[in-house]
Design a protein around this nucleic acid. Structure first.
Lengths: 328, 328
DNA sequence: CTGTTAGCGCGTTCAT
DNA sequence: ATGAACGCGCTAACAG
């Protein structure tokens, strides 16, 4: 059904090789006249190149795969925008695959899908790769990079924010604002990310000679519900005057539940969130946040993939900044 | 570098054809013994099938492409979840591509990318296809379906909510609650979707003998900002007592601006939104909405693609329902 | 049950 | 500047 270069060749009265050259080899190894004939025939036949054949013979692909965990958070859009921008500039295609939430099966399937297609690079966005799938990724001989996640396995390359600094600066900011009883909410303490943020939090408290009560820190998974649950644990009369929420959604969870308790934000309880997505601006009060440079993560990730192998293989940290709004 | 079936064949002492049969042809046209040998060799060599070669020879693909417009709204996740579920059940792969926002170039590029790969089906999520790209899609000989959008060109198959009903029921609901001066906000009047909703709104007003003031309806593009702008136009002393917002984000925009004006929701102004995503539950007051069955759209879309060509080619409407929360 | 052969559509030598 | 021939990795048809 679909037209091939052979069909075009016949129609234009040239050889398939010439057609191939006109349609892909930019360097002008052919005359203008034949080029015109070929292009005309191609258009008339509605020719669409067969990527499978091209990739089979050239042994490479112009596709970047972005694998995202359908996480509770909502910043992947920004990262993908960054990826797309660079892809467009370099005439690359990006395909996005979902890897589910801590779903080893889906992770594996997504990886296999892109590896079988030998994409030119793999970007893993906030996916906490199951160890059993590591081999698949590392032995595929395809450049890859983790984005927006700090990994247990430090051998794997990643670009993210400095989670220790996130914890530290958020806490420090609250302390500067006069708070001394500070909670940490929904931080996924099992993960490296959560662990580092906790350390930053601890360090900041320590640096200011503040005591820490273990019951001030609540585990969770960045979800809205985790914020609600944490606040319920604090109760009507919370032991803390401020909290660091590990995501914007989690922050909204604590704020809503706090208001449920009749608490005023920020007077009775100050809240600072981590991420700084658009959500912070559309809820009331607007949320003061430690804002991450997600777009930049995408851009840098792509650049690193394109310039593979990079000279500099160290993990790269994108900047964070505190954006003051109304919740502190 | 990568192992091929030839390598496996050599290692296992069989022919490539046999390897191929073991590794893909489920029907047991081979002995258990050789199968075991082959699988062992494959694992040892870290074999990964070359999809390009497979697709080249079989002339078909197990990939469904979902093209999404990076729209202001945020319901595509739900649709994609539905798609993914059906895909998993049928052992299909889903790849997602961004088509930008009314960006003809990116639309074309996304389409070309998936057509060149001759995916088995294309799902277009909320993308308002530029007429210049229609030919590309329709002549590719690949099943396709528009999701969550009503098109000008009724020849193109789609699955969405009944936009007339959305407009009608939202308005009707407000009238039932005692409102007679009702606004319509951010409805993208240029689009068929917006147009139909407006008609539904008009009809509902008409059916109850209510007059319509043209200045009550504000154009827009489903965005948060459109809600803000519309509310600013209404002013401190709005001519309406209730509004239908065309998206959850737009609803939040009007609510925020209304509160800016010192108006209380729902007492001074009632708001009903269209979509009913999770946003409705996390803002305060929670938003009463006309909730669309996005997940179901994804599921039905996939099923229709899988059973292509369907006997029933009529556009299919997924149900809508009004979910009462706190904003009316 | 298994091996041999052919060819999917294309880019790429090597000739001319 | 152009054409003929080859082969990428794999499945399908046909023998055996």
């Amino acid at each position: 059904m679909a037209a091939t270069i052979k069909d075009i060749a016949k129609k234009a009265g040239v050889s398939p090789a010439t057609v191939s050259r006109v349609l892909s080899n930019q360097t002008a190894f052919y005359s203008e006249k034949t080029a015109k004939k070929v292009k005309k025939a191609a258009k008339e036949l509605g020719y669409q190149r067969n990527t499978a054949a091209v990739e089979l013979v050239t042994q490479r692909s112009k596709v970047i795969a972005a694998i995202v965990s359908s996480t509770q958070t909502n910043f992947s859009d920004q990262i993908i925008d960054g990826i797309q921008q660079v892809a467009n500039q370099n005439n690359l295609n990006v395909i996005i695959l979902y890897a589910g939430e801590k779903d080893t099966q889906m992770q594996r399937k997504a990886l296999e899908t892109v590896i079988e297609r030998s994409v030119m690079g793999i970007l893993l966005i906030a996916v906490d790769l199951d160890p059993s799938n590591e081999g698949l990724l590392t032995s595929a001989n395809i450049p890859y990079l983790f984005l927006s996640i700090t990994l247990k396995n430090r051998e794997l390359p990643f670009i993210t924010s400095d989670d220790f600094q996130i914890g530290y600066q958020a806490t420090h900011y609250l302390i500067q604002k006069g708070h001394s009883r500070i909670g940490l909410v929904a931080a996924d303490l099992e993960s490296v990310t959560g662990h580092l943020r906790l350390e930053g939090y601890n360090q900041a408290m320590h640096d200011h000679g503040l005591v820490i009560h273990p019951e001030w820190v609540c585990d969770g998974d960045f979800a809205y519900e985790d914020g609600v649950v944490a606040m319920k644990q604090y109760g009507h009369n919370p032991p803390v005057t401020a909290v660091v929420a590990s995501s914007d959604l989690a922050a909204i969870g604590v704020m809503n539940q706090a208001q449920e308790f009749g608490l005023k934000i920020p007077d009775d309880l100050a809240v600072i969130s981590v991420d700084g997505t658009k959500l912070c601006q559309i809820v009331r009060p607007q949320i003061t946040s430690v804002t991450q440079a997600f777009f930049e993560m995408g851009v840098r990730g792509m650049n690193r993939l394109i310039n593979w192998p990079a000279a500099d293989e160290k993990p790269l940290y994108t900047p964070i900044k505190i954006v003051e709004r109304q919740s502190v």
